[in-house]
């Protein structure tokens, strides 16, 4: 694999290879929470923070502990435990440090442990053989891309709920999927700029 720079990976993870719109990861919470901009801003921030941190953390765990001990096949369990432990830790720290931040992010943190986007980012990082710097860039980009997508989606859905006539069968998840498809089409327009694969 050729060497990719920090910003190339960051940029392509946000735009051309958006983890939500091209890999369908994190769809469950994406469809459930994207009704209001405020809630999705909270969830987006939390996912961004946890993805960026755990991708770096899991890189260290994978290459410094699992590979030397030849325990690579245990990576699913180890990754998910690292993510769960990290989320728990963040929850405790936020609770102590800032009451307002806890009010804003607190309810989203337990949801995050089973968010596919975070585990997905960790697994992609391993499969693509990233170095530590590249893994950090990818984690940041994937989290940012997910947050961007859910906020854009919430903005569109909020406006849509004000004045628009949607066929009854399409209300709720149906129209959300169509919007997501259209957004994915729009993001494909970035394809020529940088490419990961």
């Amino acid at each position: 694999m050729q060497e990719l720079g920090f910003f190339t990976i960051l940029f392509s993870a946000v735009f051309t290879n958006n983890i939500l719109l091209t890999n369908y990861l994190g769809m469950c919470s994406f469809l459930a929470v994207s009704r209001e901009v405020k809630a999705s801003l909270g969830l987006g921030t939390a996912v961004f923070f946890v993805t960026a941190a755990t991708t770096a953390l899991n890189w260290v765990v994978y290459y410094r502990i699992l590979v030397p001990l030849d325990l690579v096949y245990l990576r699913f369990i180890v990754f998910i435990v690292v993510i769960a432990a990290f989320v728990q830790l963040v929850e405790m720290i936020i609770e102590r440090v800032s009451e307002t931040l806890y009010q804003a992010l607190g309810i989203f943190l337990p949801l995050i442990t089973v968010n596919c986007a975070i585990l997905g980012a960790c697994l992609f990082m391993v499969i693509r053989d990233y170095t530590f710097g590249q893994a950090c860039a990818y984690g940041l980009g994937a989290g940012l891309g997910w947050a961007l997508a859910i906020m854009a989606m919430a903005g569109i859905r909020q406006r849509l709920s004000l004045r628009s006539r949607i066929p009854r069968g399409l209300e709720g998840p149906g129209i959300a999927l169509i919007i997501a498809g259209t957004m994915a089409l729009a993001f494909m327009g970035f394809n020529g700029m940088v490419s990961l694969n």
Binding site: Y24, L170, G174, I175, L177, A180, G181, A184, L185, M188
Partner: peptide
């Protein structure tokens, strides 16, 4: 990617 979203939406 967009195709998956559209097909699922139509199914729903």
């Amino acid at each position: 990617a967009p195709g998956g979203f559209f097909v699922l939406a139509v199914f729903v």
